[in-house]
Design a protein around this nucleic acid. Structure first.
Length: 200
DNA sequence: GAGTAGATCGGCT
DNA sequence: GCCGATCTACTCG
């Protein structure tokens, strides 16, 4: 499959993009070790107008400046001082939209992923949840700002998931975002085992 | 099986 | 200082 183009990532409608990313394949190549899987859960973060976004109100710091790059790069940051969360930067330059990847169905490099997580056998929670999948894929801040058409981390095209197989629900862990917490900007493939906790 | 504490970095109020 | 786009382990029922 071909890698997704910059035009795909620079779509102004971050919600449409979050939905389209379902079914696509995410890969990493960490020091020659390739792992990958199918994206089954995403969340949209709509730049400066979204209270739940790090870029709300135009906030610009060393951490968030990656989000202002033109769509088609990765945004990796540390959450709760422990977990690396992986986002796809989208929209054109200076439009800090991003899509958080929350769930992945592993396909390539199963052994490596199990080893990185210290798990003896494959269970859905290997890659269900943003912190978990980053660890399994070997994603850390070294990958922040990397080109998604590059050699270390990339996304390949995949089947389009029909609307009736996609669920849209409120986002997770953003209760502080007031009225924006209720927006149904979390998307996942119905019934998939690698969707993170609440729901399925 | 559900609820809670702890780990621990960056960026605010 | 406090709290966050989280996960795991451990407690209690």
């Amino acid at each position: 499959m071909a890698k997704l183009s910059y035009a795909f990532y620079q779509d102004l409608d971050v919600n449409s993009l979050a939905k389209q990313l379902l079914g696509k394949q995410l890969f990493t190549n960490i020091e020659g070790v390739i792992t990958g899987g199918v994206i089954v859960e995403t969340e949209a973060y709509a730049g400066v107008e979204d209270k739940a976004s790090h870029a709300y109100g135009g906030r610009l710091t060393d951490r968030t400046k990656t989000m202002y790059l033109a769509g088609g790069v990765s945004y990796v940051y540390l959450c709760y001082g422990i977990h690396h969360l992986f986002n796809v930067v989208s929209g054109p330059l200076n439009t800090p939209h991003a899509v958080l990847i929350r769930g992945l169905e592993p396909t390539i490099g199963l052994e490596e992923m199990l080893q990185r997580r210290g798990m003896p056998v494959l269970k859905p929670n290997l890659t269900a949840g943003p912190g978990a999948l980053s660890k399994a894929m070997g994603i850390d801040r070294a990958l922040n700002g990397q080109d998604l058409l590059g050699e270390q981390i990339w996304i390949e095209d995949g089947p389009l998931i029909p609307d009736e197989r996609i669920a849209a629900v409120p986002r997770v862990g953003v209760g502080y975002a007031a009225e924006h917490a209720l927006l149904p900007w979390r998307y996942y493939i119905k019934g998939n085992r690698f969707v993170s906790k609440p729901n399925r």
